[in-house]
């Protein structure tokens, strides 16, 4: 009996080793462990053995059965692992394909610059305001110290609707509108559309600006410098420098033009900055006390600074856009590149 068990153990081990798949393994299981299986038969025959022998053979039989079962289980696990591996391999897809019919869109480069500037300024304590695009002559000009028939009116070609109503030529009317109704201190920014009677390769009749105005006690040109440095550095990068040049705007005194070091070449001179290392970026200045007074703010007590930046230009510089007109053409081949 013992010999037979040993024999079975040997045969089973060999056969388990040689099976090729789960089915054959199952056949082996049935052959040895099934109801009619070789091992089962032996165990069944044990009841005829003497007490002493039954004990020994029983122990051995258990060992043999354990070993066969173990071998079968190991083999089974091996087959399952192989099968999983095959399934995984067969399920492999081409990850370079894309979903059909759905993809993300994109914001317009102008919106992106506005959002960026707005976020920078709100974090610095500015409030966003919006104003009318169709303005009165008073707010667009007179309240900004540009009287009727003044030479300064030549600086901006306006679209007129009537003698007294026009498309705003800048976002600056909101300076006067704000100062009339608010008490200092305040810091505001006004992003929006503006209009000039000008249409050529570098001018669009409709474009965007963002006005900034701060009124409080002790606002100085030095504050303006720091403000614009921070703003331009967050917009274009930490290494950007600003440069002030004297300028003339009737509503600020002193008035300045602000250049930024060219973000493209870092100031060494390139095609974008026409070799100068700087780009003209915005106009700014200390609020003219006459403008403060016209809007009912005590210019002896308060001072302020104002700045007004175009949006299209930084949008072009930031995104290497060379044709201003492409911003308003809305060709999806252009827009898609802003993803």
């Amino acid at each position: 009996m013992e010999v037979k068990l040993r024999e079975i153990q040997k045969t089973a081990t060999e056969e388990i080793l040689n099976v090729k798949d789960k089915k054959e393994l199952n056949d082996v299981r049935v052959k040895f462990m099934g109801k009619q299986g070789l091992l089962t038969s032996i165990l069944r025959g044990m009841k005829d053995l003497a007490e002493e022998e039954r004990k020994t053979v029983g122990a051995l039989a258990n060992v043999v059965r354990g070993e066969i079962e173990n071998n079968i289980n190991l083999k089974m696990k091996m087959f399952e692992a192989e099968e999983l591996e095959r399934t995984l391999n067969s399920e492999k897809i081409d990850i370079s394909e894309n979903a059909v019919g759905i993809e993300k869109g994109a914001l317009h480069p102008v919106s992106r610059v506005i959002n960026k500037l707005v976020d920078i300024c709100v974090a610095m304590g500015y409030e966003i305001l919006q104003g009318p695009e169709v303005e009165t002559d008073y707010y667009n000009f007179e309240a900004l110290n540009i009287p009727k028939n003044h030479p300064a009116r030549d600086m901006q070609d306006s679209f007129y609707i009537s003698d007294n109503i026009l498309m705003r030529t800048h976002t600056s009317p909101m300076q006067a509108r704000t100062m009339e109704v608010r008490k200092p201190p305040f810091k505001i920014i006004v992003p929006g559309r503006v209009y000039r009677n000008d249409n050529d390769s570098t001018h669009s009749p409709v474009f965007h600006q963002m006005e900034g105005l701060v009124v409080d006690e002790n606002i100085s040109m030095a504050d303006l410098k720091i403000q614009l440095n921070i703003m331009m550095q967050r917009l274009f990068g930490e290494n950007i420098k600003t440069r002030f040049r004297p300028a003339f705007f009737p509503f600020t005194e002193p008035s300045i033009e602000v250049d930024v070091s060219c973000p493209n070449c870092g100031g060494t001179g390139c095609r974008i900055c026409k070799g100068t290392g700087y780009l003209e970026m915005l106009g700014a200045g200390i609020v003219n006390p006459k403008v403060l007074e016209m809007s009912g703010i005590d210019s002896k007590k308060y001072s302020g600074f104002a700045f007004g930046t175009g949006i299209e230009r930084p949008a072009m510089v930031k995104n290497s856009i060379t044709d201003m007109k492409s911003l308003f053409k809305n060709d999806i081949r252009f827009l898609k590149q802003m993803k």
């Binding site: 610095m124 500015y126 410098k225």
Partner: peptide
């Protein structure tokens, strides 16, 4: 002003930033 170093709004009041 190129090498001016100072804090922004050093002598003025804090205002609250606000989205429209």
């Amino acid at each position: 002003y190129d090498n001016f170093e100072g804090a922004l709004f050093e002598n003025s009041k804090v205002t609250e930033g606000k989205y429209h």
